[in-house]
Design a protein around this nucleic acid. Sequence first.
DNA 1: CTTGACCTTCCCATGATTGGAAGGATTACA
DNA 2: TGTAATCCTTCCAATCATGGGAAGGTCAAG
Lengths: 148, 148
Amino acid sequence: MNIGHAAAASGVSAKMIRYYESIGLIPRTVRTEAGYRVYSDQDVHTLRFIRRARDLGFSVEQIADLVSLWRDRERASKDVKAIALDHVSVLERKIRELQEMASTLKHLAENCSGDSRPHCPILEELASEEPLPVHGKADARFSALRGA
Amino acid sequence: MNIGHAAAASGVSAKMIRYYESIGLIPRTVRTEAGYRVYSDQDVHTLRFIRRARDLGFSVEQIADLVSLWRDRERASKDVKAIALDHVSVLERKIRELQEMASTLKHLAENCSGDSRPHCPILEELASEEPLPVHGKADARFSALRGA
DNA sequence: CTTGACCTTCCCATGATTGGAAGGATTACA
DNA sequence: TGTAATCCTTCCAATCATGGGAAGGTCAAG
């Protein structure tokens, strides 16, 4: 199977397959005489594993660890769980940051008439010397959900 | 005021001030005979505006638009509001994506014993051929909140 | 006058991904 | 068999906002 086929079968682009090879996430493949990379079904399986991990937002570095644990039949599940929960806490921190931004902006936009007049609380807030108003975590969380 | 002072006063690093100048977000400043950049209080005010917009996650391109609207006394507030709400919807889309990742991972981790045994539903899920289980938007949202 | 703290420009790195150019290989079809 | 289309290869560049650092000039305090 050539790289294009492996890409289609795994959902990882040919570009990314070459990149993953270049950084050592996947090993160098067998080549044809002409230099074409050749992939097995097992390789495609690994690529799919990688893609699913990417879809869950894991970094390439974390994926390398996950792949290595996946291959290790003696692994301890706590090592996998630790990576996963570590990533969850990073995701949750990012979520909270974005929710605070969204909530602040929504509050400002709600108070902006949004017509042809120049008066605008959004710009006033950006131009203000006061700290940005944060509407509290719980507040931000639920107001961010309200319109989602 | 030199760039270091302007950086401290605005919260924008000297590196970023030079970068913003290089991409045209802020105009080239007056220089001393020795070539040092000189900043006024007004410049610092603009830098602070930029920093606050960055803190709300606006892109440099959007900030350029916001700064230009800020300077325009004839602006229509709807133009500002449009940028803000556009950004809110981008933020909310990202939030939902991250929430789905976090929720999926938490479900998987909850079913992982996390001990020294090798059995691990997280790896099994990544290695599976089935589509990643998405726990539904509402489900994902509230389960993401539960532990946050 | 020296020392340390600033400033300047320039280049490089990040992370994951995409785009493209130049050139060789393979395949399909007339 | 010729040829055109579609693959493949490597290499370089760009994204986005930011930081690190080198080499060298400037300024202020002692």
